[in-house]
Simulated assay, not measured.
Amino acid sequence: MLYKTEYSSLVGEILLVAEDENLIGLWIVGQKYFMGALKEEPIEKPDFPIFIKTKQWLDDYFAGKQPDMALLSLKPKGSDFRQLVWNVLCHIPYGQVVTYGDIAKEAALRLNKPTMSAQAVGNAVGHNPISIIIPCHRVVGTNGSLTGYAGGIDKKIKLLELEGVDTRAYFVPKTGSAL
Rank of each mutant, 00 (worst) to 15 (best):
P42F: 02
E41Y: 11
K39M: 10
S73Y: 10
I157Y: 06
G126D: 09
A124W: 05
F62H: 04
G164P: 03
D80F: 13
V97T: 13
N112W: 13
S73P: 04
A104D: 05
I103T: 09
G152F: 08
F81R: 11
K105V: 12
A37E: 15
D47Y: 10
K4R: 15
K45E: 11
E41G: 00
K77A: 08
I24H: 03
N128E: 02
I52E: 12
I133F: 02
I153H: 07
N128V: 04
A150T: 05
K39I: 07
F48N: 12
I134M: 00
D59P: 06
V17K: 01
K75M: 09
T5A: 03
V125G: 02
I50S: 02
E40I: 08
G176A: 09
S8E: 15
A18W: 01
D166I: 04
T167K: 01
H137T: 03
A178I: 09
V97L: 02
L146W: 03
K65A: 09
Y170A: 01
Q96N: 15
P173V: 06
L26K: 07
L84S: 09
A150E: 06
G152M: 06
R82D: 14
D47A: 00
L109A: 13
I132R: 01
I24C: 03
I14C: 03
I157A: 05
Y100P: 08
Q66D: 13
S131G: 10
T99M: 06
A108N: 10
N22C: 05
F171Q: 10
D60S: 12
K156S: 04
I52F: 02
L38S: 02
T115R: 15
A63I: 06
G25D: 01
E19F: 04
L58I: 04
K32H: 14
A18V: 00
M69T: 11
V172M: 12
G101Q: 15
C90Y: 11
L89N: 03
I92T: 07
Y100M: 10
P173R: 13
G176I: 08
I132P: 03
F81W: 09
F62I: 00
A150I: 01
Q119K: 15
Y33R: 11
E41C: 00
I133R: 05
N143V: 00
F48P: 01
P46C: 07
L15S: 08
